[in-house]
C-alpha cells in the first residue's frame, strides 16, 4: 500500500491521471471478475447481466435507462409539493434574490428544475395539470449544441451539465424544446453538499442523480416522486425503463403514454399519460 503511494507521488508531477492504489486494486478485481464473468457467459448467458447490474458502485452503464411516468389525472391543481421538494433536495431554495433585483425580473431569472403547468383544451375545455422538468431525451438537443461537451448524457440516460467545463454560453437553453434549463444569474453563497451550484453555469433536473449514485440497494426514488406520494397523489413514477420488472416499465406497458413534442423524435425518458 505505502509502496504504491510512493510510486504515485513520484510520478504525480508529470501525470495528471494518477491512479490511486485503491483503484488499481479495483481494476485488478475487475479484470478478475471479467474473466470469470466471460467464462460464465459461455455457460449461462443470463448471468452476465446480473453481474453487471450488481456492481452498483462502479461506472453507470447503459444496462439501465432512468425515466419517469407522470399520470396527469392524478396531478392535483394548485399542488406544488414536487416543486418544493425539488427545491429543498437540490438546494435551489438557497439561491437568494439579489437585493436590487426587481421581483418581475427575479421571477424570470431564478432557477427552476421542475414547474407546474395548467392546461386547458381549446376545444373541449378540459383542464390538465402536470409537472414539466428535463425530459431526459435519448437524443438531447442540448448535448448536440454544447460547444465544450459540458452538457452530456450519462450512460444510464440522465442528461446533465458538467459544470466544471460549462462556459455559460446558454446555447443549450436556446436548443431545449422544454425550457427545462436555468442559468445561474448571481453568486450563490450556500449549497448543499451533493448539489453544487455557482454563478454563470447552466443547470437542470438530473433525476436526483446523487440518490441513484449513492444507492445502497433497495428502490431509488426522486424527491419529487416522494413528495407527490406523501401528498397522496402518486402522480409521479420513477424507475428503470430497461428493467422489465420495474414498476415503471410495467406501468408503461399497461397504458398508452405520450412524449411532449414527440414530433421532434427525441425519445424522451419522461412520459405522460392522460394529457
Amino acid at each position: 500500500m505505502s509502496d504504491d503511494l510512493n510510486k504515485s507521488s513520484a510520478h504525480g508531477v508529470d501525470s495528471v491521471c494518477v491512479e490511486p492504489a485503491l483503484e488499481q486494486q479495483q481494476r485488478r478485481a475487475f479484470l478478475r471478475n471479467t474473466v470469470i464473468a466471460a467464462g460464465a457467459a459461455v455457460v449461462a448467458p443470463g448471468l452476465l447481466i446480473t453481474v453487471a447490474k450488481a456492481t452498483g458502485s462502479g461506472d453507470v452503464t447503459s444496462n439501465q435507462r432512468w425515466g419517469m411516468l407522470i399520470d396527469t389525472d392524478k396531478c392535483a391543481s394548485g399542488c406544488t409539493a414536487c416543486v418544493e421538494a425539488c427545491e429543498t433536495e437540490n438546494g435551489i431554495d438557497l439561491v437568494v434574490q439579489p437585493k436590487r433585483n426587481p421581483d418581475h425580473l427575479w421571477e424570470q431569472q431564478r432557477p427552476q428544475w421542475i414547474r407546474k403547468v395548467k392546461l386547458q383544451d381549446q376545444q373541449t375545455g378540459v383542464v390538465t395539470n402536470l409537472p414539466i422538468m428535463c425530459q431526459h431525451c435519448e437524443k438531447p438537443p442540448c448535448c448536440d449544441v454544447c460547444p465544450t461537451g459540458a452538457s452530456f448524457k450519462r450512460a444510464d440516460g440522465i442528461v446533465m451539465v458538467d459544470r466544471h467545463i460549462c462556459i455559460g454560453c446558454r446555447y443549450c437553453m436556446m436548443a431545449c424544446p422544454y425550457k427545462a434549463r436555468s442559468f445561474i444569474h448571481q453568486h450563490v453563497a450556500e449549497q448543499r453538499s451533493h448539489a453544487p451550484r455557482g454563478i454563470g453555469c447552466v443547470e437542470s433536473c438530473n433525476l436526483c442523480a446523487h440518490r441513484i449514485d449513492r444507492d445502497q440497494g433497495g428502490e431509488v426514488t426522486t424527491a419529487c416522486q416522494d413528495a407527490c406520494a406523501a401528498a397522496g397523489h402518486h402522480a409521479i413514477l420513477f424507475g428503470d425503463l430497461k428493467d422489465p420488472e420495474s414498476a415503471l416499465a410495467k406501468a408503461l406497458a399497461e397504458q398508452t403514454s405520450r412524449q411532449i413534442r414527440a414530433d421532434l423524435e427525441l425519445n424522451t425518458g419522461v412520459r405522460y399519460t392522460n394529457i
Partner: peptide
C-alpha cells in the same frame, strides 16, 4: 458575455464536434 469568460481556455481546448458552436470557434 459568457457566464464564465474566465474559462476561455476550456472553450479552446474542450471540443464537442457535434456542436456547430465548436465548429464556429
Amino acid at each position: 458575455d459568457l457566464g464564465r469568460p474566465d474559462r476561455l481556455i476550456v472553450a479552446m481546448t474542450t471540443y464537442n464536434f457535434k456542436s456547430i458552436f465548436a465548429w464556429n470557434i
